[in-house]
C-alpha cells in the first residue's frame, strides 16, 4: 500500500523540530525521509527522480544525506544542522505541493545515463546549498574553518555537477543526436557551472578570499534555485516538469 507523503512530511518535520533540542531526532527525520524514498522507488521500480514531487523530496533528502556526515567535522554540530534542517523541511513541504508522478517512464528516460545525470545534479545542488549555509555561518562567526569547509563542499559539488553535465550530454547524444541543445535549462546550467568555476578561481586570489568568497558561495545557491526551479517553472525547456 502506498504511504501517504503528507503524513511522512509532517512526521519528519516534527522529528526535525525536536532535533533543535536533541540531535538524534534529526537522524530519525532523515531515516523516515529515506524510508519514504525507498518505498517510492520500490513502488515505481526505479529511482524516483521525475516530476517536482520526487525531485524536490530527493533534494530535501540530499541536504541531510550530506549534511549529517559533514556535521561530524564541525565542533558545533547543532549550529550547522539547525539551518540545514530548516532548508530540508522547507523543500520537503514544497515537494508536498506537487502530486507524486507515478506514471511509467517514457522509453527514452530508461537509461543509466539519465539516472546518474539527475541524481548527481541533485547531489551537487544539495552540496551547493550546504555551502551557502556554511557561508552564512562564516559571515556570522568569522571562523576560518567554516569557510574552508564551504570551499570543500563547493569543490565536491562542482565535481558532481560537472559529471552530471557530462553524463547528460552523453545521454542526450544517444537519445536525440546532440550533446548540446540551446534551451534555457542548458544555458542556465552553463551559467551555474561558470559561476562556480568563477568562485573556484576567484578564491585563489587574496582579494576574493574570506568574506567575498563566502558571499559568492551564498549567491551561487540563488543561481542553483533559479536553474532548478525558476527555469523549469517559468521557461519552456527539454527539462520542463
Amino acid at each position: 500500500m502506498p504511504i501517504n507523503p503528507v503524513f511522512i512530511a509532517i512526521l519528519s518535520a516534527a522529528l526535525y523540530v525536536f532535533g533543535y533540542y536533541r540531535l538524534p531526532f534529526v537522524y530519525g527525520g532523515f531515516l523516515l525521509q529515506l524510508a519514504y524514498m525507498v518505498s517510492r522507488g520500490t513502488e515505481l521500480g526505479r529511482l524516483p527522480l521525475t516530476g517536482p514531487h520526487d525531485t524536490l523530496f530527493f533534494l530535501s533528502l540530499s541536504f541531510m544525506l550530506f549534511g549529517i556526515p559533514v556535521s561530524f567535522s564541525l565542533k558545533n554540530r547543532q549550529r550547522f544542522l539547525n539551518p540545514v534542517t530548516a532548508v530540508t523541511v522547507c523543500f520537503m513541504f514544497l515537494a508536498m505541493l506537487a502530486r507524486p508522478h507515478s506514471f511509467p517512464l517514457p522509453p527514452v528516460l530508461k537509461t543509466f545515463w539519465f539516472e546518474v545525470h539527475v541524481a548527481f545534479s541533485f547531489f551537487s545542488y544539495a552540496l551547493f546549498g550546504l555551502a551557502a549555509v556554511l557561508g552564512v555561518l562564516y559571515l556570522l562567526s568569522g571562523e576560518e574553518e567554516t569557510e574552508i569547509l564551504q570551499y570543500k563542499m563547493i569543490l565536491v559539488g562542482y565535481f558532481l555537477f560537472s559529471v552530471a553535465m557530462i553524463f547528460g550530454g552523453i545521454w542526450a547524444y544517444y537519445a536525440w543526436g546532440t550533446y548540446w541543445l540551446w534551451t534555457p535549462k542548458e544555458v542556465w546550467t552553463v551559467i551555474l557551472w561558470l559561476f562556480y568555476s568563477f568562485y573556484l578561481h576567484a578564491r585563489l586570489r587574496q582579494w576574493w578570499s574570506g568574506r567575498p568568497a563566502a558571499v559568492l558561495g551564498i549567491a551561487g545557491f540563488g543561481v542553483v534555485l533559479f536553474t532548478y526551479l525558476g527555469v523549469s517553472l517559468l521557461m519552456k525547456s527539454s527539462h520542463t516538469f
Binding site: V190, L194, F195, F198, H201, W208
Partner: peptide
C-alpha cells in the same frame, strides 16, 4: 586576474 575577469564577462554575456 585575467581569467577571473574573463569568466565574469562570460557570465554576464550568457
Amino acid at each position: 586576474r585575467t581569467a577571473i575577469w574573463l569568466l565574469m564577462t562570460l557570465l554576464c554575456l550568457l
